[in-house]
């Protein structure tokens, strides 16, 4: 699903950014921790998508091959989907895959554009803070609520709301930070799209 706008490289832009190569020890450790976290996120995301494919496939095979529905397969697949999106939103931020309309900011004076990103970043992080707080509250209610099919306590699936929001906030902060400090061109999305 090719690159959205001409000349915009997605993905590669995100490396380095805030944390330049020759750096003191704490910064190097932070960078390594970040790399480790990102590898873990990648792995979890792969497993979630694979789970969705296999669960739905198994459901189709059982329904048409053996005339039998696997109880809870659809619900498990749906939970995997929600987790994939909530955690994947941070991944999409890292890869600059989010949909954004950059026709205007590309034409602004660069200093002005970077200044504009400061309050914008604040508002975005505030929104993720709202999601994180709400997720924690939902986990409280979910503790005595069961899911319809698997009869799973809902605080387990809801846990991805705060976790996903936190990871999204980390990647958003890195992306906005790099742009505001002038280490990257002023853009937080990428324009790679599917529709």
């Amino acid at each position: 699903m090719g690159n959205g706008q001409p000349c915009r490289m997605s993905g590669a832009a995100s490396k380095g950014g805030l944390l330049p190569a020759p750096a003191p020890l704490p910064l190097r450790m932070a960078r390594e921790a970040l790399a480790l976290l990102r590898r873990l996120v990648d792995l979890v995301l792969l497993l979630l998508l694979a789970a969705m494919v296999l669960l739905v496939l198994a459901q189709v095979i059982f329904r048409y091959g053996f005339n039998h529905s696997i109880a809870g397969a659809d619900e498990a697949a749906t939970f995997a989907q929600i987790w994939m999106v909530l955690l994947g939103a941070g991944y999409a931020m890292r890869q600059r895959l989010h949909v954004s309309i950059e026709l205007v900011i590309e034409r602004l004076l660069e200093r002005l554009a970077r200044l504009l990103l400061v309050p914008v970043a604040g508002l975005c992080l505030w929104f993720l803070w709202v999601v994180l707080q709400g997720g924690l509250l939902l986990m409280q209610v979910g503790a005595w609520q069961t899911s319809p099919a698997l009869q799973l306590p809902m605080n387990i699936p809801y846990a991805m709301l705060p976790v996903g929001a936190a990871y999204f906030a980390l990647e958003a902060a890195l992306a906005f930070g790099a742009a505001i400090l002038g280490r990257e061109k002023v853009a937080t999305g990428g324009g790679v799209r599917v529709d």
């Binding site: 329904r63 005339n67 529905s69 109880a71 659809d74 319809p148 099919a149 009869q151």
Partner: peptide, 26 residues
């Protein structure tokens, strides 16, 4: 017997239609 019958996503409803011999399909 063996017919795919849509039920609500609910353990009792699924069990009921399976007990009736149908293939409960949420």
């Amino acid at each position: 017997r063996g017919r795919k019958i849509r039920t609500q996503q609910n353990p009792v409803h699924v069990a009921a239609f399976n007990a009736f011999g149908a293939n409960a399909t949420p």
